[in-house]
Amino acid sequence: MGSYIAKRLLQTIFVLIGISLVTFILLQVVPGDPVALMLERRADAETIARVRHELGLDRPYIVQYLDFVKGAIHLDFGTSYFTREVVTDALLRSFRVTFKLACMSFVFAAAVGIPCGIFAAAKRGKGIDTVVMVLSIIGVSAPAFWVAIILQIVFGLRLNWFPISGFDSPLSYVLPSIALGARYAGNMARITRTSMLEVLNQDYIRTARAKGVRRSVIILKHALKNALIPIVTLIGTDFGYMLTGSMLIEKVFSIPGIGKLAVDAMSNRDLPLLEGTVMYIAFVFVIVNLIVDISYAFLDPRIRIGKGAK
């Protein structure tokens, strides 16, 4: 296991270097001069050239890239061209918000999705199974911004139960968490149901039934334990997605998280902020996948890395 983790960590470094290179090249290729954007309005060509020089954008690409990599190693992505905020500070500030939203959305998705999936599997073919599956399809397919607006109108404007924007009270996180988590809840319900049905058809479950074990014990103790393995993989990846923010949800609910930071950085061609945000997103995905892979090996004793199950 130790060598597996070391190998994965090494791969992670190469992945991050690759992403940094691709990001850097793409940002040079995509049209959009950050200096022209910064100075818009009355600035002339000479002023634009002077500011480009001050920002070091007229240096050779290789020098700029090596500077970026050197900074990234020290978690120093420089200062935002537009807000003049240190990029690491901006990332940290937005991460705190996004992390909180991601955790609450994750809890909502898991608390709703997994029990619904178990329930649907236990009641397979019955009306309640159909209802849960239809709801899960709606959850997966409904656009998040649409869910957000409906939640705002119903639970904010009409019922006045929850705030509809901002993030300055625990209650203000309820609606965005549901809006963001709805899709993941639907997905978890579907995967849980499928996984549960597969396990419920296995011999050891039949044996347990024959021995007269109570149905609830069979489902929750014997079946769920094995059915959870693919679900853990799914929820790990989902959590990774949540940690990279959701531009739409953040915009609708006025939450200054990572998603909004990334989109704003892109629209402004704010190179330091954009590079920092992309590296953050890449890092989150790589680390989450690493954790999922490691936990997967821990959770399933049949899995032995590089040895196969015998």
Binding site: Q152, I164, V252, S254
Partner: peptide, 16 residues
């Protein structure tokens, strides 16, 4: 000044 980026949310906040 409350920062609300979404134009629809601004109006909903006004209505509330």
């Amino acid at each position: 000044y409350r920062f609300i980026d979404d134009v629809n949310t601004q109006i909903l906040e006004y209505q509330m």
